[in-house]
C-alpha cells in the first residue's frame, strides 16, 4: 500500500476510521518514541509517554488545523507531554534528578519495555550507554532537544529553528555547546 498524505489519513480519522488511526501511528510511532527516549533515555518512560501522546492526538484530532505540518504539530505535543510527565514525576520524587532513574506507572503495563528491545545489551554497549547518558545529562533541555532533532531526526538547522521558534544562530550555538559537552565522552 502506498504511503498516503497526512491530511488524507487525518480526514479519515476524523470520520472515525480505525484503520487510519493505525496508519498514522505507524507512520510516526518510531519518531515519537525516539524523540522521548532521547530526552529521558528510559525505555519505559518513552513507551508510556508516547502512548499518551498518540491517545491525546487522536482524541483531539479535530484541533489539528492543517496550517502547520503534522510533524510540527505532533512534536510540540510530544515535548509538552514529556515535560508534563517530568513535572509530575519531580513532584512525586523530589530527590530524583536523573531521568534514567525515574520509574514509570508500571500498573498500566504488565511487561518491561527494555525486555522487548532487539539490540544486544552487552557489556560494551552498557558502558558506552553510561558514558553517553552522563554526557547528555550535562546538556540543558534545549541543547538535548536541538541535538536530537539534528542528529536523530536529521532535520536541517533552518527547520529546527522554525519548529522551536528560535533563530538559526541560537540553534547553531546550542549544537556547538552540545558537541563540546559530548566530546568529553571520547576523551573520558
Amino acid at each position: 500500500m502506498s504511503i498516503r498524505d497526512d491530511r488524507e489519513i487525518i480526514n479519515d480519522i476524523k470520520s472515525g476510521s480505525i484503520h487510519a488511526m493505525d496508519e498514522l501511528i505507524k507512520k510516526y510511532q518510531k519518531r515519537v518514541y525516539n524523540t522521548i527516549y532521547g530526552l529521558c533515555m528510559n525505555y519505559d518512560v518513552a513507551w508510556d509517554v508516547s502512548q499518551d501522546v498518540f491517545v491525546k492526538v487522536i482524541k483531539n484530532i479535530k484541533s489539528f488545523k492543517e496550517q502547520s505540518s503534522f510533524w510540527t504539530y505532533l512534536y510540540r505535543i510530544v515535548i509538552n507531554a514529556f515535560y508534563d510527565w517530568t513535572r509530575k514525576e519531580k513532584t512525586k520524587k523530589r530527590a530524583t534528578t536523573n531521568f534514567s532513574d525515574m520509574t514509570t506507572d508500571d500498573s498500566k503495563r504488565s511487561y518491561e519495555v527494555k525486555d522487548m528491545i532487539n539490540i544486544e545489551e552487552d557489556f560494551d554497549r552498557k558502558m558506552l550507554e553510561e558514558k553517553v547518558k552522563k554526557g547528555l545529562d550535562d546538556l540543558t533541555d534545549i541543547q538535548r532537544q536541538v541535538y536530537i532533532l539534528k542528529n536523530i531526526e536529521g532535520m536541517k538547522i533552518r527547520e529546527i529553528a522554525e519548529l522551536l521558534k528560535i533563530s538559526e544562530g541560537t540553534v547553531k550555538s546550542h549544537l556547538s555547546r552540545a558537541m563540546e559537552k559530548l566530546s568529553v565522552i571520547l576523551k573520558g
Binding site: N34, W47, Q51, F54, V55
Partner: peptide, 26 residues
C-alpha cells in the same frame, strides 16, 4: 556513538502491539 545509543528500535510485532494498545485506549 550517541545516535547508536539514542536510536531505539523494536521488532515489528512490538510496534504493532503499541498501536493496538493506543487504539484500544482511544
Amino acid at each position: 556513538i550517541t545516535v547508536n545509543v539514542l536510536k531505539v528500535d523494536f521488532s515489528d510485532d512490538i510496534w504493532e502491539m503499541e498501536r493496538k494498545e493506543i487504539i484500544r485506549r482511544v
